[in-house]
Lab assay of single mutants.
Amino acid sequence: VTTYKLVINGKTLKGETTTKAVDAETSEKAFKQYANDNGVDGVWTYDDATKTFTVTEMV
């Protein structure tokens, strides 16, 4: 189990959250659901070296 981080650069929501998951794909699903639940829709990137997802909304 690995800890993954999500950085949110939204128009109205900014911040970070973490989750523990067995792999990046599992954490990505959880993070995308979290973003969707909070009305964040944007461009996703992933940095495997830091286990960090970033979602950026276009303004």
Rank of each mutant, 00 (worst) to 15 (best):
W44R: 00
G42L: 02
T12C: 15
K11H: 12
T54I: 08
E25D: 09
T54M: 07
E16W: 14
N38F: 14
G39Y: 05
G15K: 12
Y46K: 01
Q33Y: 05
T45N: 07
Y4S: 03
G15C: 15
V59N: 12
W44C: 02
V22Y: 12
A35K: 02
V55I: 11
T56D: 09
A24T: 10
W44S: 00
T17G: 04
K5V: 10
F31M: 03
D47K: 03
E25M: 12
I8K: 00
T56E: 06
T3R: 07
Q33M: 10
G39D: 07
I8C: 06
V22I: 13
A49M: 10
T2S: 11
E28P: 01
Y46V: 00
K14L: 07
D47N: 10
V43C: 10
Y46R: 01
L13K: 08
F31Y: 02
K32D: 01
D37W: 06
E57F: 07
D47V: 05
V40S: 01
A35F: 03
G42M: 03
I8R: 00
T2D: 09
F53V: 00
K5W: 11
E16Q: 10
D47P: 00
Y4A: 02
V1W: 14
A30H: 14
G15R: 13
T45H: 10
T52Q: 04
E57I: 09
V7T: 05
E16T: 14
N36P: 01
K29W: 08
Y34G: 00
T18L: 09
L13D: 04
E57C: 06
Y46E: 00
K32P: 00
K11C: 14
M58C: 12
V1T: 12
K11L: 15
L6Y: 02
N36T: 13
T45D: 08
N38G: 04
L6D: 02
D47A: 03
N38M: 15
V1M: 15
S27Y: 03
L13M: 12
A24H: 10
N9Y: 13
Q33K: 14
Y4G: 02
Y4M: 00
K29L: 11
K14E: 05
E25W: 11
F31G: 00
T12G: 09
M58P: 11
A21S: 09
F31S: 00
Y34D: 01
T17Y: 15
T18N: 06
T12K: 10
E16K: 07
Y34N: 01
Y4V: 03
T19G: 05
N36Y: 15
